[in-house]
Amino acid sequence: MVEPALTQLRKLTANETHRLDRAIVAVSVNPELGTQVPGTLLRDYADDIDGVRAIYYVTALLTITMVAYAEA
């Protein structure tokens, strides 16, 4: 993780961290879970139950770069 992400993680509540962890695990188990963002290599995953959204990119080596947030 990069420093700005670590700073943001320290500000999350335990509930927000748990919700984001669930989304990260879901995407890591199934990288094709989200929908393709038209005209890009990005994928968009939304979990309406936990109120989490993740935009991510999967490399050829299956490394995942992700930006995720918990909705209020």
Rank of each mutant, 00 (worst) to 15 (best):
D47G: 03
R43G: 06
T7P: 02
H18S: 15
L33Q: 11
M1T: 13
Q8F: 08
D50C: 01
A26Q: 03
G51C: 02
I24D: 08
L42C: 10
Y56M: 04
T59M: 02
P38T: 09
G51L: 00
G51N: 01
L20I: 15
L42N: 09
R53H: 03
E71W: 02
T59E: 07
L61H: 10
D47K: 02
L42F: 13
E71F: 04
T35M: 14
V37F: 09
T35Y: 15
T17P: 01
T65G: 06
T7D: 13
D21N: 15
D21Q: 15
V27A: 02
R43L: 15
P38W: 04
G39Q: 10
V25W: 08
E32V: 05
G34H: 02
P31H: 05
T65Y: 13
H18I: 07
T65R: 09
M1D: 12
T17K: 05
E16D: 14
R10A: 10
M1F: 12
T65M: 08
L33R: 12
L61E: 09
Q36W: 08
D44V: 06
L33S: 12
G39I: 07
T63D: 15
V25C: 04
A54G: 04
L33K: 11
N30K: 12
L42P: 06
Y69G: 09
T17Y: 03
V25E: 10
I24K: 09
E3L: 15
A46N: 14
V37S: 05
V2F: 12
L12Q: 11
Q8H: 13
A60M: 10
T7Q: 15
D21E: 12
A54Q: 07
A60V: 11
T17D: 02
M66N: 05
V29H: 12
P38D: 11
D48N: 08
L12D: 03
S28G: 03
R10F: 07
R53N: 01
T59C: 02
E16M: 02
V37H: 06
H18V: 08
R10V: 07
T40A: 04
R22M: 13
T65W: 10
L61C: 05
D50P: 00
A46E: 15
L12V: 05
L62M: 11
I55K: 03
A23N: 04
L61I: 08
V52S: 05
R22N: 14
E32H: 12
K11R: 10
Q8S: 14
I49L: 08
L33F: 06
A68N: 03
D50W: 01
L33T: 05
K11C: 00
A46Q: 13
R43V: 06
I55D: 01
Y45F: 14
L12W: 11
I55H: 03
V52Q: 04
A72S: 12
P4C: 11
P4N: 15
A68L: 10
A60C: 07
Y56I: 04
A14V: 06
A72M: 02
T59H: 00
P4R: 13
R19K: 13
V27K: 02
G39M: 08
L62A: 14
R22K: 15
T7N: 11
